[in-house]
Amino acid sequence: MWNWENPDWPKFTYDSKRLESLEAKFLVKSGEFLGAFKHVGQDDRDMLKIELISEEAVKTSEIEGEILRRDSVQCSLRQQFGLEGDATNINEAEHGIAEMMADLYKRFADPLTHNMLFDWHKMLMSGDRQIEDIGGYRTHPEPMHVVTPIAGRPKVHFVAPPSNRMKKEMDSFITWFNDSALKGKNPLPALTRAGIAHLYFVCIHPFEDGNGRIGRAIAEKSLAENLGQPTLIALAYTIERSRRLYYEALERNNKDLEITDWLKYFAGTILEAQQNTINRVDFYVAKAKFYQRFRGRLNERQEKAVARMFREGIDGFKGGLSAENYLNITKISRATATRDLQELVEMGAFTKTGELRHTRYSLKLSEENKR
């Protein structure tokens, strides 16, 4: 029996006391994010917003096995927010996810409606030539299965409600979502509401495709509504790093209406995502201060290597930058590379570890460069 076959569906039950400490931590972390964001200069906030949203767009697609180009998604996002951007070479999938994420950011406070979900689905599926129902709930008579295509005997993880129930199911979902908002008829705490919203939506599985991405967007919208502002939270980024645990948690909780374990898992994921977001903001601040400190002191080759290292993001080059990495980035002689790297260490831009072929270099984002 799947949860939607239970006669009490969709009356989820859970132990709210086991979530109280997590809800309190969420509010504290939200304050920490605001504090970190205040250290970003006004001119840099648009750039940071684009970086954070593009990372979410790329990662929420990657969870579903779709690999997008981050630079193209960022170009599309800049256009969505009225900033300068080059629209050339952006494919439909990259433009679609960027458009949806920008719409989520702009309309986070609007009540959830069928049309909002239809708009998001049209954006996501704009380049798809195989989906019949784009911008509408599924209508095909065949059961909607979530499966892993194992050779010989596919593994069925979930069977969703039949298509003829979609209008009724989604009417109920949208009513519940809006009523559970902070100013709704039956308000719920932030983590509890976001967790239920995500599980509830993906168990209905109302679209032919795109349910995971829209479900995560709904969770982010829920958090933003409860906070009264866009969260810029690294939720998809965090889920993608432990994708297997995410799918296992969904599968463990699609057969019963008691979902305390799911809510604890999802709340923990949101808290981790908040910390990841704060770390990324701190990294951006440190990056800005790094460039202030070394402005005019780096040659063209060094600037190119530093920019490449920053583009790797907060995780950086795995194991650090090697001399071979530097050669590949700059296309120069080994002697010149050795001299460049030594200069970067001496001026305090890089730290050096290891010896000989095990030598590695990292950006020196010292304490004075941090918040």
Rank of each mutant, 00 (worst) to 15 (best):
G65C: 06
Y200L: 04
K25E: 15
R78E: 13
V202P: 06
R357S: 08
A305Q: 06
F118Y: 15
A307Q: 15
Y291A: 00
K255W: 02
S322L: 01
T13M: 02
Y14F: 15
F290Y: 07
A288S: 15
K287H: 12
G184K: 07
G319S: 02
D119M: 08
I278P: 13
L83R: 12
D15H: 06
R301C: 01
I218E: 03
R107G: 09
T351Y: 03
A249I: 02
Q79G: 11
H198C: 05
N115V: 11
M1Q: 11
L327N: 06
F12C: 05
V58A: 12
N369T: 05
R129W: 05
P187K: 13
D171C: 08
F283G: 04
A194R: 04
A93C: 02
E51F: 12
R280C: 02
D71C: 02
D103Y: 06
T60H: 03
E56F: 02
R339Q: 12
E346N: 12
A98D: 10
P10I: 07
K167G: 11
K38P: 00
S222L: 04
G354M: 05
L182K: 15
G319K: 01
D282N: 13
Y200R: 06
Q342H: 10
K370M: 14
Q274W: 08
A349K: 01
A323W: 00
R339H: 07
K183Q: 12
H121G: 06
K221N: 05
D46P: 07
P111W: 11
L263Q: 02
D261L: 01
I196H: 11
E300F: 12
S333L: 11
R244V: 11
Q80A: 09
G96Q: 05
R18C: 04
F294P: 01
P111Q: 14
L48F: 12
G212R: 03
L124F: 08
E94W: 00
G348V: 01
H198S: 03
T359C: 09
I97F: 10
